[in-house]
Design a protein around this nucleic acid. Structure first.
Lengths: 149, 149
DNA sequence: TATTGTTATACTCTATAACTATA
DNA sequence: TATAGTTATAGAGTATAACAATA
C-alpha cells in the first residue's frame, strides 16, 4: 500500500482531519489549563477526584491510565501544592485514600467552569447545534470502536 | 456556572465525546507506533521529513510545533538511530538541512502503511463512508475555529 | 542587529523493577 | 503468596535563557 493512498482511502482519509482538529483544540485547551498553574496530568487527577470523597491509588491509576510508579510523583507534586491529601483507609493499612483539599476542590470548581467558558466560543462559532449533535453521535461510534475503556 | 451544566450545554457537551474518541484512537495508535520503536515526537518528525529532500530546523519546528531547543534533542536521538542526517545548507552557513537517511526513508515507508493497515479496521467498523465524509467536514470546521496553524 | 541552531538548566511525565508494609 | 504503594533508575519530552556562528 503506497503512502499516497493514505489520503485517498475512504476510511483512512479521516485520520488527518481527526488529528488536526483534536490537536488544534488540545493546544488551545492545554495552554489555557497550564496558564492556570497545573499540568495536563495533574488536571486529569483533579478531574477524577473532584466531587468525590476520594479514591485509592489503584482506582486513580485505573481512571487516569497513569501507572502507579508515575502516579506517586504526580500526587507528590499536587500534595506539595496543597491540592490533595493522603489519608489512611480503615480496614486496610496498605491502601491510602487520595482526597482533594478545600484548596483542591476550589481549584476544581473554579478551573472547570472557567475553562468551559473559555472553550465555548470556539465550538459555537464552528458548528450549529444540529451539527454538534451529529458529531456527538459519530464521535461516540468511533470511541466505542477503539474501545471506550 | 455549575459543573453539572457541562454536559447540558448544547456546545460544551461536545467536549467529552471529542476527548474520549480521540484518546481512545490515540492510545491504540500510539501503542502501535511505539511498538515499532519510535516515540510520538520522533514519528512526527519522520512523518514531516518523509518524501522530502529535507527541511531546516526552523521549518521542522514550525511543522511539528516542537520548539528549537527541544527539537535538537529529538533530532539527536533520531541521528543516533541512524534515521536522519544533518547537512550543510549552501548559501547560509547558519542553517542545516535535516534529511532522512536510507534507513529513515525505509522506516517511513514501512511504518506508515503498516500503521495505516493497523488502524483501518477500527474506522471501518465504526462508520459508513457517508458518515466518514460528514465527519471530515465537521472536523475541519472545528479545526479552523481553533486555528489550523 | 537579527537569525539559526546548540547548550545549559530545570521540571514533568513515562515505565519498569526492586522494595516495604500489610493482608 | 499476593496486594498497595513508594523508591530508585533511566529515558524522553517540554520550555526558557544564554550562547556562538553567521548574515
Amino acid at each position: 500500500m503506497p503512502i499516497t493512498d493514505f489520503r485517498n482511502d475512504p476510511y483512512l482519509s479521516l485520520l488527518r482531519p481527526l488529528v488536526e482538529a483534536y490537536l488544534a483544540f488540545y493546544r488551545v485547551g492545554t495552554r489555557h489549563i497550564e496558564s492556570m498553574g497545573v499540568t495536563s496530568a495533574q488536571f486529569d487527577v483533579i478531574a477524577e477526584l473532584g466531587g468525590t470523597d476520594g479514591l485509592t491509588c489503584a482506582e486513580l491509576g485505573e481512571a487516569t491510565l497513569i501507572t502507579k510508579g508515575t502516579l506517586t510523583g504526580v500526587l507528590d507534586r499536587l500534595e506539595g501544592k496543597d491540592l490533595l491529601v493522603r489519608e489512611a483507609v480503615k480496614g486496610d493499612r496498605r491502601a491510602i485514600n487520595i482526597r482533594l483539599t478545600k484548596n483542591g476542590e476550589d481549584i476544581f470548581k473554579e478551573i472547570f467552569p472557567v475553562h468551559a467558558e473559555f472553550m465555548k466560543p470556539y465550538f459555537k462559532q464552528a458548528l450549529t447545534k444540529e451539527e454538534v449533535n451529529q458529531m456527538k453521535v459519530l464521535l461516540n461510534k468511533l470511541r466505542d470502536s477503539f474501545g471506550n475503556t
